[in-house]
Design a protein around this nucleic acid. Structure first.
Lengths: 347, 347
DNA sequence: CTCATTGTGTAGAACGTTCTCCGTATAACG
DNA sequence: CGTTATACGGAGAACGTTCTACACAATGAG
């Protein structure tokens, strides 16, 4: 068992709070006070202690801290890693945390509810100070139950009535409306929405919200065009085939609003293969304004929800809750449309 | 201080190892033995304890565990999140870990060496059982120093002489050679490489290795074509402008090998804007075989290094080291070329 | 029958912090 | 001068595990 030996030898030279205390000639409690900058520390004492800390290169053990106090770590749970708006969220979280002494640890659920749950539990068992859940698949009651154990902010989870935890979202209904309105403006009437299969079809999911927005915009348009939602379930291996079939079907719509750039880009690609001209034969609007959509080869119009801003907002919200806020807060941010060639010409 | 109150009330009902012990009518030590399935436990005892654990829904505290033993957590450090081959790595790590009782926690360094270091330290302070560093920017001695404190596997870090830690890589020299050879086969002679600016120009970095492979392949070709490496430093705001300038310069090469799909896709996009035909006027080969490269709109030939396999291999390597291996091991995996339209026609 | 041996379980000391008391010195006040 | 604040610092009990050392019973060997 070499790692144990390793630990043991490392342990002998490990600098603990006791090492610092004796080096500075003060008590352990005093060092702890300085660390937490608690009340009752003279400048003189503080100086000695910080000096010793520097000199010895002391770092407090997170795991020992977790046993009693805070760990200064927040957990970020991503249900899956594929979505192009996640990097922005991560950057936002890290950005807000950078000047503080907090740090983010990320768990990836790989789209498995069980792993998702178990990661949340692990983060709680690590005594992290708070959690940001991004588009969790869990039902609201479960999230609320976890929220009794640890401060939670849910991102991409539309549950404005939740009292136990906070939510931060873009207005996904509004985003869908923006897309449909823009397509209507360009003269299209026959507008379909490409969505996900039902799965856990909670209203809280961003996809459902976008469907609602799509339906409303279509109905408000006053035109004869009736809402048409095409579901292509996620993760199926014949996903591309299903899209291909949709694109070559007789009642292919004139315009498509896609729930995500992920699908919209595939649609554009398949259209190119099938010699369907964009936007002449088919207009497309995506969601997320991913880096790919901006490529001039792709040129996909898309709804922008700044992942970075969402991440920043979620972090600030979480920090305020960690600092004592108890009333739930639910934030809704405004999406915007990025016009690109796939939208067609504005009249 | 409501969170404290929350912790306190939660604490009262918290199920600890002591709760389990008294519920099962055995000692704390016995429960601990069952948990770690250590020696000296009868089937009878084990039955009682696991029964109580189930019934009470007990989960051991990671932070308390970390104070003495293992935490069953491994840390995955990503220097930045943008690179398209990272999702595969994460999936590979999670895949290998899934059947075990280990879990991965991810830290993202946002390309800042300081944050990178501090995340590694945090992971050590959390008493994680091992670390996988993906393409760390740190010099070898620093990594080796950390490796005395915790088992480390470095991924995308070419230091086959390291004795303190393991490495897992694809043969990046070979990858570059594959790209150049394919371009040579297609009849191109004037082949440039698009690389990154110098920065921490260690030989250990994958980019340097690809440069070496590129140079070797060019020299071995026996043709007059001399190696030409164009550096466009990462993260500069005028990155696209620099590429545009390169593409419109008089001595634009006939073919480009890009260090990453990230750049290759941008090149293709700019080429389209500039009416440069691919592959007729310009052939391009990228690196990573990212999802984008496979889009028929893009159709970028690329070197494939399966991130998933790398992640799996790194995890297995790390686990074996955690279990006691002390001799360093350095794994090199074989890349492959994915031929697509941007490569031009094979003769 | 005695003495090791083996199998099973327990007691209790770590592990490195936080945090509640408590003691002491100094200052302020009457 | 005595009393009461106030500021500073320390002792020591948690926190929830792991793990060494030991006790005890049952078994086997001689």
């Amino acid at each position: 068992m070499s790692p144990k030996d390793g630990q043991k030898t490392a342990k002998t030279d490990r600098v603990t709070i006791r090492t610092v205390a004796s080096h500075a000639g003060v008590s352990v409690a005093a060092v702890s006070k300085v660390l937490r900058n608690a009340y009752g520390v003279s400048d003189n004492l503080r100086g000695k202690v910080t000096g010793s800390i520097q000199e010895l290169g002391y770092r407090p053990s997170r795991t020992a801290r977790g046993l009693r106090g805070q760990t200064f770590t927040i957990g970020l749970l991503l249900v899956e890693i594929g979505n192009p708006f996640l990097p922005g969220v991560i950057a936002g979280v890290n950005g807000v945390l950078a000047p503080s002494h907090y740090q983010a640890m990320i768990g990836v659920g790989e789209a498995q509810t069980q792993l998702e749950t178990s990661l949340i539990e692990t983060m709680i068992d690590y005594k992290m100070d708070g959690l940001i859940l991004v588009a969790p698949r869990l039902p609201s009651e479960i999230v609320a139950a976890f929220a009794t154990q640890i401060p939670i902010v849910a991102l991409g989870y539309h549950d404005a009535s939740a009292e136990a935890f906070d939510t931060v979202n873009t207005d996904d209904q509004r985003g869908a409306e923006l897309a449909v309105e823009a397509l209507l403006e360009c003269g299209y009437r026959d507008i379909a929405m490409l969505s996900l299969g039902q799965r856990e079809g909670h209203k809280v999911s961003v996809v459902r919200q976008r469907e609602i927005g799509y339906r409303q915009a279509m109905q408000l348009s006053g035109f004869e065009g009736e809402p048409k939602i095409v579901n292509i379930s996620v993760g199926s291996p014949d996903r591309e085939d299903a899209m291909r079939a949709f694109l070559t079907s007789e009642n292919r719509p004139r315009a498509i609003f896609c729930w995500s750039d992920l699908d919209a880009v595939t649609i554009l690609s398949l259209a190119a293969e099938l010699k369907i001209r964009v936007p002449e034969d088919l207009a497309v609007v995506g969601y997320d304004n991913s880096p790919t959509s901006g490529l001039s080869l792709v040129n996909l119009a898309s709804i922008d929800q700044s992942g970075r801003h969402l991440g920043e907002m979620a972090t600030r919200t979480l920090l305020s809750r960690i600092e004592g806020r108890t009333a739930a807060t639910h934030i809704l941010m405004e999406p915007s449309l990025v016009r690109r060639a796939s939208l067609g010409l504005k009249i």
